[in-house]
Write a protein that binds this DNA or RNA. Sequence first.
DNA 1: TCAAAATATGCGAATGAGTTGCATATGCAG
DNA 2: CTGCATATGCAACTCATTCGCATATTTTGA
Lengths: 120, 120
Amino acid sequence: MTTARRAILRALENSEDHPDALMLHDRAKEFDPTIAQATVYRTMRLLEQEGLVEKHDFGNGRARYEEAEKEQHDHLINLSTGEIIEFHDTNLEALKIEIAKRLGFDLKDHRLELYGVPRE
Amino acid sequence: MTTARRAILRALENSEDHPDALMLHDRAKEFDPTIAQATVYRTMRLLEQEGLVEKHDFGNGRARYEEAEKEQHDHLINLSTGEIIEFHDTNLEALKIEIAKRLGFDLKDHRLELYGVPRE
DNA sequence: TCAAAATATGCGAATGAGTTGCATATGCAG
DNA sequence: CTGCATATGCAACTCATTCGCATATTTTGA
Ligand SMILES: [Mn+2]
Ligand SMILES: [Mn+2]
Ligand SMILES: [Zn+2]
Ligand SMILES: [Zn+2]
């Protein structure tokens, strides 16, 4: 456990949004001003492999991250503002598993994003 | 409508899978041997913007394409083989719309991929 | 049918997120 | 403390995709 890693972990804990690696780099600098981007990339890869972090691709070119501990949820992206809204739906979870099963598979992972505009 | 574009369209029509730009380039060469990769990229971007093609990211680095649709479907990726299985579920479609509505949004787009391994 | 205007192409160079080699610095076990 | 294992910073690299530009093809419309 190094200074750089502690800085990144803290940056992550303090984040309520879904930051990308560059944002995390900036935020981690507050705790370790000399930290390099490469270290952020390496650390995020490590954390993801260890299952401590979830990596998302919301289609803006850069991967976005969040701590894995939270309860299972999916995301709705507000196309007007870019805001990311988290939601959880039990029926949906069950349905995903059931669909996989119907096709002869055990569901190991999934990706679900909804893109919408606010209802006027 | 140019020779290059016709070649790409034909390559796409003849494809039953979800080819990436490089695969399409190879396949299009059959109809226009001098076609350049840049043209494939440009044309796919155009087709996507026109809504004639759907672009997917199945997490292998390269974007995958298919004709915009036959009928609405989602994808299950067999993690053991990489095979892509298409499926359609009415309940799921309805549920996605309903969830968006519940959150105060009109659903404009969505992305759903299931990743699974064959049940033993 | 033809020439000019409009568009698309091929090529190679550029981009940008992410990765990696390597010399140095840091962390940790003894 | 010391020594070895591991992580870091930096710069160079990768790889998919985009772009500039000179040239070629298509389209327009007289
Ligand atoms: Mn989820
Ligand atoms: Mn779909
Ligand atoms: Zn989230
Ligand atoms: Zn498909």
